[in-house]
Amino acid sequence: MSSQWKLVPVEPTQLILDAMTTERKKGNGVLQMWFEAMAAAPAPPLEVEGVDFGIDGRSVRVSQEAYSIFLAREAAAREKIEALQQRLNAADQRIDELTSPFQSRVQPWLMECFGPMIAGDREERNHRFLEEALELVQACGCSATEAHKLVDYVYGRDVGEPAQEVGGVMVTLAALCLANDMDMHAAGETELARIWTKVEQIRAKQAAKPQMSPLPGAYPQRTPQ
């Protein structure tokens, strides 16, 4: 018996069937039919060079070139996904910043610009708020005479409760902005972003401010303490 091997199809081809039928009609035995069937069997397909990788739960063989293209596109897609994720993270951070209370987002600027002592100085904060409030009404058409009359009027009344007065400031500021077609929230965000770029200039102005005075300003003759 021969020790040679041969790959054959799982299902017999028509050529194999025809060869076996011919030998049967000749009256030949099973062994001769087998030999003829093997001779008629097609050669197995050549193995395709390439790379096997899994897709959709099955193994697929592709050429090395196709696989290289796949890897390059996969790497490019991953880079795009990572860049998109970074943008999403930045957007989430910005959303968190904008949804945090405005007051809490002013504090880091105060601490960076002035330090805890001046940032928490109530007298200094009174003066700076009054200054900004006067500058606002001046910009909206209030005269100095009207402002002085209101100062005399307010200081001729009983002292109010701070929390209630803060509420009054917020309500009247909103009303003032509505009357002048301004968005108080947008204006606040714009100003907070602007003053973050002016930290050094504001520090210098604060250092030059005369001590024990409510007035701001730059005084070249004064040496910073």
Rank of each mutant, 00 (worst) to 15 (best):
L110Y: 08
A204C: 08
A72Q: 14
F53T: 06
P116K: 09
R87S: 02
S59F: 00
A39S: 15
A119W: 02
Q221F: 11
P220C: 04
K198Q: 15
L88N: 00
H127K: 07
E135L: 14
C142N: 11
S3L: 02
C140S: 05
A207F: 04
K209Q: 05
Q221P: 00
R203H: 10
L15I: 09
N180H: 08
T172W: 01
L7N: 06
L17T: 10
H127D: 05
R122P: 03
I202G: 01
A139S: 14
Q225P: 07
W5H: 05
E82Y: 04
E132N: 01
P116V: 13
R94W: 11
R122N: 12
E49V: 03
V166I: 11
F129N: 04
L110G: 00
K25P: 00
Q221T: 06
M38N: 11
C140L: 15
L215P: 01
D92G: 03
Q138D: 06
E131P: 01
I69A: 14
L173K: 03
A174L: 12
M33K: 12
S59Q: 06
D158N: 02
A179Y: 07
I202A: 05
Y153N: 12
I81A: 15
R125V: 07
M170W: 04
R157G: 04
L71W: 06
E82N: 13
E112L: 06
S68C: 09
C113N: 07
R24H: 14
I81L: 15
K198F: 02
P44C: 07
A204D: 06
N180E: 10
A41Y: 06
A37H: 06
P44I: 03
K209M: 05
S143K: 11
N89M: 03
P101L: 15
D183G: 04
G160I: 15
L110T: 02
M1F: 04
